[in-house]
Design a protein around this nucleic acid. Sequence first.
DNA 1: ATGGCACGCATGGCGTGA
Length: 257
Amino acid sequence: MKIATFNVNSLRKRLPIVLDWLAQQKPDVLCLQETKVQDSEFPLLALAPSGYHITFRGMKSYNGVAILSRKQPEAVFHGFDDGGESEDARLLRVILDGIPIVNTYVPQGFEIDSPKYQYKLGWYERLRKYFEKHLSPGKPAIWCGDMNVAPRPMDVHSPEKHLKHVCYHEDARKAYERTLAWGFQDVFVKLYPDRQQYTFWDYRAPSSLEANKGWRIDHILATAPLLEKCTRVDVDIEPRRAKDPSDHTFLWAEFSV
DNA sequence: ATGGCACGCATGGCGTGA
């Protein structure tokens, strides 16, 4: 099973890139974040030629998640079910071949002094409880998406400059690690513990891509029984170099299931 | 130290992203 994740930064703007990548890479599953489209405007017709089943939940202007899959999911779940904000446009779970796949667009947090940052930290805590409720660390499961956390110093350029950045600040990294500790492991780190490879390069520094000043904030994680079946994982940088790119690019992994 | 680019929109500036 080949699974990929991509923050599209507007699905409608990125349709050519998504369609090209599906045709070339033929993943079994593609998880998208920041579709930035409400459900009534979702570009189903444009994606129909791909032949993928599509499940999605979005809102106007911001956020939005979708999962494209070769097979029809056996079940689909939107958002949290803990009585708080459901966050449907940030959390989507499907079951495919009996394997739960959780796609998240974790809140970015704005600034560390902002209430939005506290919301981000709380979001990770809710997600850990969501895993406790719906998944088992001893059974196959995948969690992927834009986590808005660079877990290690090598996962961001100039880490010393970003100690107060909401995607690298100690509390964000701890919140992320606590959620992982429920029972998920990063498949990229497992296969390439020493490799520096970013998944995001800021638009605002025009040379960020050429200078490789980026962040590794998109992740694919697996529970133990799946982790040992992960045979390949990589980042495809080409879509970031394409015309009218997203500021993120695709991360993908293969599992021998 | 600051801002930069891109996107969507009850759009001619603003909120958001990271």
